[in-house]
């Protein structure tokens, strides 16, 4: 199962929540599958989805789902200790771990080798870390929401991208409608 198939399956869950979505093809796919004002699309700044989501979760009470990537978490590894030590029970970090830099042509990341992001999240002190397959993502995500506890989900899936258009929304529009969804 590839990222776009996972996003299509969990779109009915995502659409009711604040979502911070990773740079590149993940945001393009989510935007094409189910654009919502409650989606914050990252158009740049590789690595910071988890940090933006944590700040958002700490600042307000609604659940926040971050759709991140293995490459992006690896480039901002300092995020895991910060998440672990500043618990926000409305925070879900869902890492789509396709073992590659998907957006740039599926170059392998070290999670396709010896590195386990779930292990790193646990070592960082994250209490609730769940690993699952692409097929299991929907129920695992729903369970994390129902648990009311900060959860890191590492979805192990295949590398591959759906062909979707570039997002042409103005960033200030994305941000403004997102902030209205936060306040709604």
């Amino acid at each position: 199962m590839i990222r776009s198939e996972i996003l299509r399956e969990i779109a009915p869950i995502l659409r009711d929540h604040l979502v911070i979505c990773n740079i590149g093809i993940p945001s393009q796919e989510l935007h094409a599958i189910d654009d919502q004002p409650s989606n914050f699309y990252m158009l740049g700044t590789m690595g910071l989805a988890s940090s933006i989501g944590l700040g958002l979760a700490l600042a307000q009470p609604k659940p926040v789902i971050v759709i991140d990537g293995d490459g992006s978490v690896l480039t901002n590894l300092g995020t895991l200790p910060t998440i672990a030590n500043n618990p926000a029970d409305n925070y879900i970090l869902m890492i789509i771990d396709n073992g590659s830099y998907g957006s740039t042509g599926d170059q392998p990341t070290y999670t396709s080798g010896k590195t386990s992001l779930a292990g790193m999240a646990r070592a960082a002190g994250c209490d609730r870390v769940v690993e699952c397959s692409g097929e299991e993502t929907g129920p695992v995500l729903q369970e994390a929401l129902d648990s009311g506890q900060m959860t890191v989900i590492v979805v192990r899936c295949d590398s591959g991208n759906a062909k979707m258009p570039v997002i042409t929304l103005d960033p200030v529009v994305i941000r403004d409608r997102f902030m209205k969804a936060v306040r709604a």
Binding site: I20, F40, T45, G47, L48, A49, S50, S51, I52, G53, L54, G55, L56, A57, L58, A59, Q60, N76, G78, T79, P81, T82, N86, R175, F178, M179, V182, R183
Partner: peptide, 23 residues
């Protein structure tokens, strides 16, 4: 919220501000 790197910190601030808190 101590950050481990300053760009990470700016991400936290961006999220907090969108969540309604000045950062």
């Amino acid at each position: 919220v101590p950050a481990n790197k300053e760009d990470e910190g700016m991400g936290l601030c961006a999220g907090a501000w969108m969540g309604g808190q000045r950062a």
